[in-house]
Amino acid sequence: MSLPTRPLAVTINGHRRGPIDVPEGLMMIDVLHEMLGLTGPRLGCGIGICHACVVIWDRDDRTSEEVRTCITGAHFFEGKSIRTIEGIARRDDTGRVLALSPVQQAVLDKFSFQCGYCTPGFVMAATVLVERLARVPVPRSEVEATVSAALEPHICRCTGYVRYYQAVRDVILATPGLTRDAG
């Protein structure tokens, strides 16, 4: 018995991939891992709770959001543009990393993680947040609450979150244009 397939074409990290034949009921995490060689997004709970598997969906209106790939069918992404953790750092034409993103660097500098399984998810959430604040800054007094709200759905089982939250808060406070004075 063979599974019915449909062609799937997705723009991932700025490169158009596919069309490839993908079984219709396959979740996106499986396609990323098994068919596209992108193993950065992690499969954790498999039921949309832990958020280790999220990718960034860049919508046509230039907003972006996290999507859980463990519970979202691959064909949901047909024709859409997404970023995975592999596409966050700046790279040269050969794929060599030139510079980590400020969020990635801060997470390293703060020793935010131990095992690192949840890290791709946290970095995606923080990246979406930083990009959103560049469009719509928040008062400095609300940064703490904003970071908490953005990272809250992500689950970490080793470190107790504090250093993730500190890292993201510091990036936001240190980056011009993400915050404004209250009033």
């Binding site: 979202t72 064909h75 949901f76």
Partner: peptide, 23 residues
């Protein structure tokens, strides 16, 4: 059906049978 497969089937299953004690 396409929307169901894309957004619902990951948890509720293609056949709609869910996951015992979970979904």
């Amino acid at each position: 059906r396409s929307s169901y497969v894309a957004l619902c089937s990951g948890c509720h299953g293609l056949d709609g049978n869910g996951v015992p004690n979970t979904v």
